[in-house]
Design a binder for these strands. Structure first.
Lengths: 223, 223
DNA sequence: ATTCAATTTGTACAACTGTACAAATTATAA
DNA sequence: TTATAATTTGTACAGTTGTACAAATTGAAT
């Protein structure tokens, strides 16, 4: 058994939703992409909203698990600045890069979330909120420990901006390529992760009341 | 003559598009909101795509003009750090806060842009790109002058994150309210502007090779 | 008042939507 | 093989979509 039709349908649904949103993609589009019949969708998922719910249930848990795993590692770092960097990476990396699980995972699913959250679809709103707020809260707490003296408002706003930067980069990578005249590749996820982490490192660190040593310039990978 | 039907239609179209995206809003929805007939839309705009184009043409020019005006003022500031702050405000404020023009302007239009850019609608993609890239480039140049030694890639990525933060905050302000347990109001645009400017100030400034004086903590308004 | 153009309405159209369900097919187990 | 269940297909349905266009209404100028 290579891959069940249900799995194939889920995979193509994520791909299409992440490209064009929830409303613009019809069940027939998904069926056609998967080489199946429309009826198979109602059979396996009952309704379009339920299909979306199944997608979330498939990806949410592994992704947050990976995040918390990396967060656990980060928390063992004693130096606050290095820990801050690691905590940020723990939040960003699983959203950008697919883990071991074969199916699309990471970037494509996150991109879908970004698109749906902007679309404001009622079907999606509820599912989104309670699937990720808990993880967000855990991370904000972890960040707070890395930035002594930071105000709660500052932490929340900056975590909002971090998520916005992350989403927008997944949705509109070509803007980077375009604005740079081709010298920077917006699709380069490794570079994007490093840049997001660096940028939010600076923005979080500036919240600290203890402005002491300059930021360490750790940059793995290229760039 | 208080307001022509055409203007009323445009106004309601922006409102609806900014809430639910392009695909989810039908011409009949817009007509109903404006208390008019479907036919009036095809009469005044010809097609749905053309309606969108008209919306952009209506708002783009005044908004970018305001931005460039504020940018001109900012450029006269000699101190690089203060200038950086002012340049960022010049970019962010007109996107968030309606200027003198009566019609929805500012926030609502920007929110619509955010939603449409995520939706990836082909009708919108082209219009969006060439309407704003030029302004973005001018700002990146201005930012470069405030941050000596910054790499072009760093500047472009951070301007990408700035726009992402801006968009996401307009689209999902309630996440801030929710995550803070109600103590922070995500809809408070003045606070949002200040936070975005502060956060990106830190992220841009960290690009400088001359890491010297600590960041000034200028915060107008509440918070 | 009359003419002519501009606007607004109403309605019709083909295409597409999510969903339902009977029929056909395939897999599973005895 | 046979029977039983699981899956997949095909098709039909009512509702909505963008668009087109004739008819009705309004406006402005003579």
């Amino acid at each position: 058994m290579r891959q069940s039709l249900k799995e194939t349908l889920l995979r193509h649904a994520v791909t299409l939703f992440s490209k064009s949103g929830y409303n613009a993609v019809s069940l027939r589009d998904i069926a056609k992409a998967a080489g199946a019949n429309v009826g198979s969708l109602t059979y396996h998922f009952g309704s379009k909203a339920n299909l979306l719910r199944d997608i979330y249930e498939l990806h949410t848990r592994p992704m947050n698990a990976r995040r918390l795993e990396l967060l656990g590692e980060a928390r063992r770092i004693s130096n606050p600045d290095e820990r801050l960097m690691a905590v940020l990476r723990a939040y960003v990396v699983p959203a950008f890069i697919s883990s071991t699980e074969s199916d699309g995972g990471g970037a494509e699913f996150t991109r879908m979330r970004a698109v749906l959250s902007a679309e404001g679809n009622p079907d999606a709103r509820k599912i989104i909120a309670d699937a990720f707020d808990e993880t967000s809260r855990v991370f904000i707490d972890a960040l707070a420990e890395c930035v002594p003296g930071a105000s709660p408002e500052g932490l929340i706003w900056r975590s909002q901006f971090l998520l916005g930067a992350l989403y927008y980069t997944l949705v509109n990578p070509e803007r980077v390529t375009r604005l740079s005249g081709g010298t920077v590749d917006g699709e380069d996820r490794e570079a994007a992760v490093n840049q997001i982490v660096e940028a939010s490192y600076a923005s979080f660190r500036s919240l600290s009341t203890e402005l002491a040593a300059p930021a360490p310039r750790i940059m793995k990978g290229r760039n």
